[in-house]
Simulated assay, not measured.
Amino acid sequence: MEQGALTTGFFLIALDEPAGRPALHPELLACGLVGAQLADLVVAGALTVTEDERVHATRSAAPQATTDEAAALVLDSVVHEPRAHPVRAWVDALGAPLTELVQIDLVRRGVLAVEERRGLLGRRHTRLAVTDPPAAHAPETTLRSMVRHPSTFTLHGASTLVLVAALGVEQLLEPEIDRATARDRAGQATAHLPGAIARLRDGLAAAATAVGVAVRR
């Protein structure tokens, strides 16, 4: 799977196509995107997550190891920090810029387009339109298929489902996949994933809980 596929895939799964915007609150979307990018770099062997849920660069990590802008942002940030920080800290620090980079990348690749419209009072509104339906729908379609047929799960697919469950946003897969099934499959998948992904899941769940509390205030 291409570099950054976990991150762009999560963005597309979260996209509410009729509304032209992500179905998640911006802070929760950012939490998922940072988690997905960290997971992508863990799978690539550039980062790891320790028992205290802190993110560390591995010996093989290097800023020039990736040409993907979103991945480079996260990897460079971790590599150049003098000490390790927990997952939640990276969500707070990188959520907004990472969200912007992922959207820009999808528009540049022709998967999405930004449309501007005027409302009844002349106000301008922007929306995201799908311009490449097969590419835009592939992450969600593939993940749903894997949930129905667990033997087909890939490392990236299992990681994505585990992150979706950690955020508590299984509704993104409805109505084809119900919450209980998604959670059950995510629990099964965790046992087969690298330990660093499981620890990332725990850190991401804590960050998502904090975001949820802040949003409800």
Rank of each mutant, 00 (worst) to 15 (best):
T66N: 03
D132A: 14
G9A: 03
R108Q: 15
A39T: 07
E140V: 08
A39P: 10
R21L: 14
L94W: 01
R117A: 13
A208I: 10
V215W: 04
A189I: 11
G168C: 05
F11W: 08
Q37G: 10
R179L: 10
L41E: 09
P18C: 05
R217C: 12
L173S: 05
R216S: 14
D68S: 12
R124T: 15
G35D: 05
L47A: 11
R88F: 00
W90V: 06
G187F: 07
L143G: 07
V213K: 13
G119W: 03
P18S: 04
G157D: 09
F10M: 14
D105Y: 01
E81L: 14
A30L: 00
L75D: 10
D52C: 00
G168A: 04
V55C: 06
E51T: 14
A62Y: 10
F10Q: 09
Q103P: 00
D16G: 12
L193Q: 06
P26R: 11
L101D: 05
A46H: 15
R216Q: 12
G187E: 13
E115Q: 12
E100A: 15
E100V: 13
I13S: 03
G20A: 09
I13Y: 01
H149P: 00
G4F: 10
A14L: 04
H149L: 13
V147K: 11
G32Q: 00
A72C: 07
L41I: 06
D178M: 08
T67R: 12
V213T: 13
L38K: 10
L128H: 02
S77T: 15
P97E: 06
L121N: 08
V78N: 06
R216N: 06
L47N: 12
T8V: 04
